[in-house]
Design a protein around this nucleic acid. Structure first.
Lengths: 167, 167
DNA sequence: CTTAATCCGACCTGCTCACTAGGATATATT
DNA sequence: AATATATCCTAGTGAGCAGGTCGGATTAAG
């Protein structure tokens, strides 16, 4: 499994999508509510949201105390999925070879790291895919009706549903 | 780190590239030689090559005994990197959500798995990148001179060198 | 001043990765 | 036939990390 999205990434994205759906609400959204809606552990979500809050620049802002909670720091269409995933999962690097050290020497010596180009290509493909989508894209059409008009979103026909069998 | 290439994938691809470089040799190439050339553990390579040999269809063929070793089962230009990586790393699935079960229910119930489309897109991007490259593409131009003329390869100018800092 | 929320760090537990070890089997060379 | 050189096979193992839990401190609304 070359593409490994941990629960950090999975839950974190769901959290952000939830916040995006409630972006136009007057009150911040509490983790308790999110945890209940998404059936996730509150304590674990606290860890994830910390990453999103301490990111530079921050992806969410918090208000403490009763009736507190979280909001997106920016409108959904200005937050790319690439930003989110990088904060949660770390840099998109297929292997240590990206932050090279000894590896570089071995590679150049043995002339075996033609493979580096392969991994770089794959990495760029992932990065570009993530960077070209925003939170607004992920909040489906069903939500859009009940909220303010979105600036842009993908229609159902745009979505290429993947075959059930794993590729 | 969303893109996680384990040593299986890394070493395995290097092994295959090595075999591709020696594809036109009259004798099979032994793991001992590969291990030495690539500075890898012989015992570990044995495990990896087993996967490649038992794949359906096989990616390498072996000849046992003294002066034995391995060959590619097909010419380098007929073996895609997608095949190799899938054999070594398993299916390209970002999460269990691909081989769904309980997840499907929760997703449809909570309507939170708009995120599924995101991961499906990323997965397809990786799959397409890997499937569009062959072993022949990875064996660099320097090799090509000393061997038979290749059917196709990428030139240096095609290669988009990634920045040293991880994306 | 009680309740509801964010914040913070320590801890734990099971799983997987990345090997190593030790052999059994097959074949070319001498 | 004997030896050297290979592939083949299975088990075990140690470290590290994913995926949380737990207990408490701080902050603000009613």
């Amino acid at each position: 499994m070359i593409l490994r999205v941990s629960t950090k990434g999975e839950y974190g994205v769901r959290l952000m999508v939830d916040l995006a759906r409630h972006y136009y609400s007057s009150r911040p959204r509490s983790l308790t509510d999110i945890a209940q809606a998404e059936q996730l552990s509150l304590a674990y979500l606290e860890q994830l949201v910390k990453l999103l809050r301490e990111a530079e620049p921050p992806l969410v802002v918090s208000t403490r105390g009763a009736h507190g909670g979280y909001r997106l720091s920016r409108p959904p269409e200005e937050i790319t999925m690439g930003e989110i995933v990088r904060v949660l999962e770390g840099p998109i690097a297929p292997m240590i070879c990206a932050t090279e050290g000894e590896m570089t020497q071995i590679c150049s010596l043995l002339d075996s790291c033609k493979t580096k180009f392969l991994w770089a290509r794959v990495r760029d493909a992932v990065a570009q895919t993530l960077d070209s989508m925003t939170l607004a894209d992920l909040v489906g059409a069903s939500e859009q009706e009940t909220q303010n008009a979105p600036t842009h979103f993908i229609s159902i026909s745009d979505i290429r549903v993947a075959p059930s069998s794993a590729i």
